[in-house]
Nucleic acid binder design. Structure first.
Length: 273
DNA sequence: GCCCAGGGAATCG
DNA sequence: CGATTCCATGGG
């Protein structure tokens, strides 16, 4: 891959990054496909527009500094996905999924946003999760040129349980508030969990009310850079039942388990048998 | 172990 | 079409 810095933005040439696969597999909730070539949304309090062009993906209007400081990492451009895909394809049962999912990147989202978003995601569907999060952002997020940032824990505490409930989050209001309080008080520093071993970070997350194994693994994978996390939702449960032995342990995929999970999810959800 | 908690999507009859 | 089930977690 080559990166070109143009007046129109940053062009990722010959990249395997597939913006539609990446932003439509349930790992983030604030991005949308807006036309046949374009995905756009907000992360780290800034708007990002990604556009498929002749020779790659154009990050519209992004400067070299902004790319290096923020989006390169957010889009996980530092990882050799060709290599990862090849290694995962060595597992017979991942061959098909790795082929259809190739182009998916794991997004490195903000730890607090990931935690809060996946608390909202529990027992919920994607369109509704997006709606609740957008409402929370417009109500309590800081307004910037590009739109509303994700609300800080402090802003949500100020809003209170009733204020949070205005988002339509239902019974999750108290979980969101409790998570915000844990972070604001310093009893849980989500950013610190990045450096902890997987098991320890998992324990700290599941100690929160409203955070079970599924939610914790999503936070670890999509916000805390623990690519060995393997979130099991209904789709993945189905995949495991269908194609794998009853005692199969995804930990054999090691540090790529989370990427394997994304491939399997995408294949089952959008490609089929 | 069983039911319930928003509410919209998915699936069923 | 309307009716039912599902979603992931904790509490009663």
């Amino acid at each position: 891959m080559k990166t070109e810095f143009l007046p129109s933005g940053v062009l990722l040439k010959d990249t395997e990054l597939d913006i539609f696969k990446t932003f439509d597999c349930g790992q983030c909730f604030r991005f949308e496909k807006i036309d046949e070539n374009t995905v756009c949304g907000i992360a780290y309090g800034r708007r990002l527009v990604l556009e498929n062009s002749e020779d790659g993906v154009l990050l519209r209007g992004v400067s070299e500094e902004e790319y290096e400081k923020l989006w390169r990492d957010f889009l996980d451009m530092g990882r050799d996905y060709f290599d990862v895909n090849e290694k995962l394809s060595a597992y017979e049962k991942l061959k098909t999924a790795a082929k259809s999912g190739y182009g998916i990147h794991i997004l490195n989202q903000e730890p607090w946003e990931a935690l809060c978003s996946f608390v909202i995601s529990q027992n919920n569907n994607i369109p509704r999760i997006k709606k609740i999060i957008e409402k929370l952002c417009t109500l309590y997020g800081e307004e910037t040129e590009g739109g509303y940032a994700f609300p800080t824990p402090k802003a949500l505490i100020k809003a209170g349980k009733e204020g949070i409930a205005l988002s339509g989050c239902g019974f999750r209001d108290r979980y969101i508030l409790a998570a915000a309080e844990a972070v604001e008080s310093g009893s849980l520093d989500p950013t610190e969990l990045i450096a902890l071993p997987y098991e320890e970070a998992f324990k700290k997350l599941t100690a929160l009310k409203g955070v079970g194994p599924k939610v914790a693994n999503c936070v670890l994978l999509f916000g805390l850079r623990h690519t060995e996390a393997f979130p099991v939702d209904v789709w993945i449960k189905k995949v495991l039942d269908k194609y794998f032995e009853p005692d199969f342990d995804p930990r054999i995929f090691g540090d790529w388990a989370g990427i394997a999970q994304q491939y399997l999810f995408y294949n089952e959800r959008f490609v089929g048998e």
